[in-house]
Design a protein around this nucleic acid. Structure first.
Lengths: 252, 252
DNA sequence: TGCCGTTCCTGACGGTTCGTCAGCCTCTGG
DNA sequence: CCAGAGGCTGACGAACCGTCAGGAACGGCA
């Protein structure tokens, strides 16, 4: 139960030196790459080790198992979520509200996009009751949800049209944003364009927060965000053993 | 690629007789039970076989792998989704709209609740690009999404306040419903009550469909649905080898 | 330069699960 | 009671797991 700074301690307790850190990082990078193009359950330690040009035993020197390595990867993403909160905490006035809404939606989609593979695992593990991943997820989304709740409470003193409890409204909206972002490709596959999704979500968001309806004829160009793109490392694809194993299974 | 009626053909081509069907069904039931209380990736064929009082080889006589067995389970759920479409295709008039909205939301939550374990796998496999699961998911949600799109187009001829394209609006709303339903326990853990979530989602739904705001002071009692509870088999929990294996891993 | 302790890595091993046979058991119809 | 189709399983090679003890690389010091 003890909560250690699990950043750098190796499994035997000692904290690694420079070379060890490098190896550890290499293993993490390879894990991320594999995750990108492989069903998560078919990632084997041996694949990661091969990819990193080392032996399975080395992997176990730094991580208990694949899951824990992914947990570390996910930990790194938590920080990027703070930028989402900053977007939410923007200008919801009569003039700027609509732009803010669209920037929030777009920010969510970009953030998800950049970290899609890791999020998949976080979602699943959370739903399966893994407390470590749940805690992580809460931490990542808590900031932005609480911020949104505060904005809702502030912008609509008499209560949002979407409900009396700001926290509930915020949670509902964040759910929408997260799920649509996660299934974006699915929708495009279905012929629903991303721009259209952004517009629709932004309208719901604006209304829920301020009670106002989006200005007419405003679909189309999304304003550039005030800051640069949201954090996130897109790993290069790699056609690996694990990917091949998985492909074989699907192609029946 | 050939699309067979994968309902009853055994792996060797022959279609099983009465006894075989029973065994197959027993294996499916045990798979569902295990899925209920076990992280999906740690379900082993040997667990299912033991639970069913048979040998692993028998399992392979009826299914290619665990994944395919779950696919069959998921296939059975698709039918229940039709009832959701029926709920959506209700009375959205001035008087009844609010009740309809709440019933839809409640129906979604019940449906998800009853089939939580299977849905987890469907979601993950879909996001990982498994076309069999994606097709299944599309089929399951397509009916209700298309119905909702039609309702949106009909109820707000000048365009929904949530966007111009009814299909996009419907997809966005279904996303919200699905994700909130999936994370319901997470929210309760967070102190957000389910009733409150139902209220909030129903408000957004009503507004998006009709452009109207929910009647004031209406939170609280949710009207009983017109029909009985939505289909879905809740399997009994079972403390199994697989569950124990998983527990050991989490408890560090 | 050569020595030596520390840090890092790996070959090899016992154990578990996988997926696949050939062959045995069990029903049923004649 | 028998024949044969249908149903089941023991046993096996292969893959991966997780863990050692011990070898290789490194870096400080005389």
């Amino acid at each position: 139960m003890a909560r250690e700074p699990e950043t750098l301690a190796a499994t035997d307790g000692r904290l690694p030196g420079r070379r060890g850190q490098a190896t550890r990082q290499r293993l993490l990078t390879c894990t991320a790459e594999l995750l990108e193009g492989t069903p998560w359950r078919s990632i084997k330690v041996i694949d990661i080790a091969r990819q990193a040009g080392t032996s399975p035993a080395t992997f176990y020197q730094y991580f208990e198992n694949v899951e824990q390595a992914i947990l570390v990867l996910a930990e790194e993403l938590t920080e990027g979520a703070g930028q989402l909160a900053a977007l939410v905490d923007g200008d919801w006035s009569e003039e700027a509200g609509w732009d803010t809404a669209r920037q929030v939606v777009r920010g969510f989609m970009d953030y998800w996009e950049a970290n899609r593979a890791v999020f998949r695992v976080v979602e699943l593990a959370t739903e399966e009751g893994d407390l470590r991943f749940r805690g992580l997820r809460v931490r990542a989304l808590n900031a932005v949800t609480v911020t949104l709740a505060r904005v809702v409470a502030g912008a609509a003193p008499k209560g949002s049209p979407a409900g009396d409890d700001p926290m509930t409204v915020a949670a509902t909206l964040i759910s929408m944003l997260a799920h649509v972002a996660a299934h974006r490709y699915g929708y495009e596959f279905w012929g629903i364009r991303t721009d259209s999704l952004v517009d629709s979500q932004a309208r719901i968001l604006l209304w829920s927060v301020t009670g106002r309806t989006a200005p007419a004829g405003s679909e189309g160009a999304v304003p550039a965000p005030r800051s640069g793109p949201v954090v996130g490392g897109g790993a290069a694809r790699a056609r690996t053993d694990a990917a091949r194993r998985a492909a074989r299974r699907v192609s029946e």
